[in-house]
Computed example of a mutant assay.
Amino acid sequence: MATPTDPDLRATLRSGLPDRYLTPDDIAEMFEVPIETVYQWRKKRTGPPGFRIGKHLRYDPADVRTYVTERKSANRDAA
């Protein structure tokens, strides 16, 4: 459960992403998917683009926002 000092990552996705690189756990929480799904997205290159810092996987908030915007546009166009 989030404490008052912990940001609600789903609300953050709607209102503005944090000013830090995101972890795979952050992505899983934001999209309400299992962490395994995040790793499958990376393997299949279907999710937001990530990058490695040493052995650590991170996501740029700007790339995540672009990914969401593109997905929303694709869904509108398909409807």
Rank of each mutant, 00 (worst) to 15 (best):
M1W: 13
A2R: 15
P4D: 10
T5W: 11
T5M: 13
D6F: 06
P7F: 06
L9M: 10
R10V: 05
R10T: 09
A11W: 06
A11P: 03
A11Y: 07
A11D: 11
L13W: 00
L13A: 08
L13P: 00
R14V: 02
R14M: 09
G16E: 05
P18N: 08
D19H: 11
D19E: 12
R20T: 04
R20G: 02
Y21R: 11
L22E: 00
T23D: 01
D25G: 07
D26G: 00
D26I: 00
I27N: 00
A28V: 01
E29P: 00
M30W: 03
F31C: 09
E32K: 14
E32D: 14
E32A: 14
V33E: 03
V33Q: 03
V33Y: 04
E36Q: 13
E36M: 13
E36C: 10
T37P: 02
T37C: 08
V38G: 00
V38N: 00
Y39G: 04
Q40Y: 14
R42Y: 02
R42T: 05
K44W: 12
R45Y: 07
R45V: 07
T46Q: 12
G47Y: 00
P48S: 10
P48Y: 02
P49V: 05
G50C: 03
G50F: 02
I53T: 09
G54F: 03
G54I: 04
G54C: 03
G54V: 02
L57K: 05
P61I: 03
A62F: 06
A62Q: 12
D63Q: 11
T66E: 14
Y67F: 15
Y67C: 04
V68L: 07
V68H: 01
E70L: 09
R71H: 07
S73D: 11
A74I: 05
N75S: 14
N75L: 15
D77Q: 15
D77T: 13
D77H: 14
A78L: 15
A79S: 15
